[in-house]
C-alpha cells in the first residue's frame, strides 16, 4: 500500500535502477554491432515522432517500420522491435519491394549509399507522411529527413528540417537537440 501512496518517488527509483542494470549489461559487452544500435534508434525515433492526423495518441493499428532497398539489418531489426510498443501500438517491420507495397510505411529506412539507389525511394515517399531515415550525411543531402553518421565509434544522426517539414511528420525537440547537425531553411 505504501507503494501506492508514494508512486512517484518509487517510479523514479525504479527507473534509476533499471538504467543502472542495463548500463551494466551493456558495459559487460562493451561494444555493439552498428546496426543493432541503429535499430534501437529507429524505435526511439518512432517514439518521439507525431504523424499528421494521429494527434500522437491514436492507439489503433500497428506502427509500421519499413526497410526499403538494400537491407543492412538482417534479423536485427525484427529482434529489436519484437514485442515492443510505441504509445501502445505494436511495432511491425515491413520490407516492401515497390512503391505500391510501401503504402503502410510510417517510418522508412532507405538502404544503400548511392544517390541512384536512394533518390527513387525518396521521391516515391515525398508526398506521404513518412519519416525517412538513412545512412550518412549524403542521405539528408539527397532529401531524406534523418541520416545516421558514425563519429568516434558512436552512432549519431543529422536532421534535414526541410525534408521533415515537407513530410508533415513532427519530431520532438528532444530528438532535434541530440542531432549532431540540423540543416535546412527552418534551421537558419
Amino acid at each position: 500500500m505504501a507503494l501506492l501512496k508514494h508512486p512517484r518517488r518509487c517510479r523514479s527509483l525504479a527507473a534509476l535502477s533499471l538504467f543502472a542494470l542495463t548500463a551494466r549489461g551493456l558495459r559487460s559487452q562493451e561494444a555493439h554491432p552498428e546496426y543493432e544500435v541503429k535499430a534501437a534508434y529507429l524505435l526511439n525515433f518512432a517514439r518521439y515522432a507525431a504523424w499528421p492526423g494521429s494527434g500522437g495518441s491514436e492507439a489503433a493499428g500497428d506502427l509500421v517500420i519499413c526497410v526499403l532497398g538494400h537491407d543492412p539489418f538482417g534479423a536485427v531489426l525484427d529482434r529489436t522491435v519484437a514485442g515492443r510498443t510505441v504509445l501502445g501500438r505494436p511495432v511491425r517491420v515491413l520490407r516492401p519491394a515497390n512503391r505500391a507495397e510501401a503504402g503502410p510505411c510510417q517510418l522508412a529506412f532507405v538502404g544503400g549509399d548511392r544517390r541512384s539507389e536512394i533518390e527513387p525511394w525518396l521521391s516515391d515517399l515525398s508526398d506521404r507522411p513518412v519519416l525517412t531515415v538513412g545512412d550518412g550525411a549524403q542521405f539528408t543531402d539527397a532529401g531524406g529527413a534523418i541520416g545516421f553518421v558514425v563519429r568516434d565509434r558512436t552512432v549519431r544522426f543529422e536532421v534535414n528540417l526541410d525534408a521533415l517539414r515537407h513530410s508533415g511528420v513532427k519530431l520532438s525537440s528532444r530528438v532535434l537537440a541530440l542531432a549532431s547537425r540540423v540543416e535546412g531553411e527552418a534551421a537558419r
Binding site: A31, H32, P33, V37, V155
Partner: peptide
C-alpha cells in the same frame, strides 16, 4: 536517445 548516442559500436 541520449544513452544510445554514447554506445560504442564494434
Amino acid at each position: 536517445l541520449e544513452q544510445l548516442a554514447r554506445v560504442k559500436i564494434t
